[in-house]
């Protein structure tokens, strides 16, 4: 079974909510990224989104844009991130890893070769914000509904009648974007966020995760009955910046969030 799906199933059986964080690969450096992944596993994160830096991250706000830019300046690319994942898996990490990336990076690597490499190194899922449902065929035909790597579907507050079609293809969990626009705009959720999340929850057979603009577990209290978990990206990067990528700070934040999320 796919690692993300197994994890989600396990949480559902235990009646727990899921917590996922985002980090940009290669910050502060690749060794640091590996240590962060291990720390997040220890702290009880249920999966980690690992951002592959791209020169033109059009779906990201300033925090992740800057992180991405710095990672590129540090020489981080898809190849060396694959190596880091391979190493950290060999060192025993079982935490589900989801690549968050732009489609050009996949195309440039070669779609087939990319999928094969994900399988070999232990990448469990993919989030590609510039690859909407209509453009997924090429990638999905290579992923071939396998248990190794799955494509995570995103839904937005204005998806409307697209929601059932998107859910039809979704595996692992469905990623509900809390607001229009880009990552990291503060907890300024879309005005229709409750109705929309409730609709997705009602239609979805798999867990519903909410992301964009979340900082603390308290931010999602109003939605706790219609979501199965929360994703924190920009805020976590900011926190890491402020604490100089301290492993301890990462662990404390994740442990606290996960605990509070399940006490809401």
């Amino acid at each position: 079974m796919n690692r993300i799906e197994a994890k989600m199933q396990q949480l559902q059986q235990a009646g727990e909510k899921a917590f996922i964080t985002y980090i940009t690969a290669g910050l502060p450096d690749l060794e640091g990224t590996k240590e962060l992944l291990k720390a997040q596993e220890r702290a009880g994160c249920d999966a980690v989104e690992l951002g592959i830096p791209f020169s033109d991250p059009a779906a990201d706000g300033p925090v992740i844009q800057n992180a991405s830019y710095r990672a590129i300046c540090n020489g981080i690319n898809l190849k060396n991130v694959f190596s880091a994942v391979e190493e950290v898996r060999r060192e025993g990490l079982t935490l589900p890893i989801i690549f968050m990336m732009y489609y050009n990076t996949v195309l440039h690597y070669g779609v087939e070769a990319f999928v094969k490499k994900c399988r070999e190194t232990g990448v469990d899922g993919l989030i590609i914000p510039d690859l909407p449902l209509e453009e997924q065929e090429e990638l999905q035909s290579c992923l071939a509904d396998s248990e190794d790597t799955i494509l995570i579907q995103l839904v937005s507050p204005v998806s409307g009648e697209r929601i059932p079609k998107i859910l039809d293809r979704a595996r692992g969990f469905v990623y509900c974007v809390s607001s229009m626009g880009v990552t990291g705009q503060g907890a300024d959720f879309h005005k229709e966020v409750m109705t929309y999340l409730a609709r997705v929850k009602e239609l979805s057979k798999i867990p519903v995760m909410m992301g964009f603009g979340i900082r603390t577990a308290e931010d999602v209290r109003p939605m706790k009955d219609v979501i199965d978990g929360a994703i924190v990206g920009s805020h976590f990067i900011q926190l890491m910046e402020e604490h100089d990528y301290s492993i301890e700070a990462a662990e404390t934040y994740c442990r606290t969030f996960k605990k509070e999320l399940n006490e809401l």
């Binding site: 510039d130 690859l131 909407p132 449902l133 209509e134 204005v158």
Partner: peptide, 22 residues
Amino acid sequence: MNQKAYYGNFGGQYVSESLMNV
């Protein structure tokens, strides 16, 4: 794939889900 969005192998709609209905 939305065929009418393509000129041969080129074109398409590589945008975030929020923009697809737009």
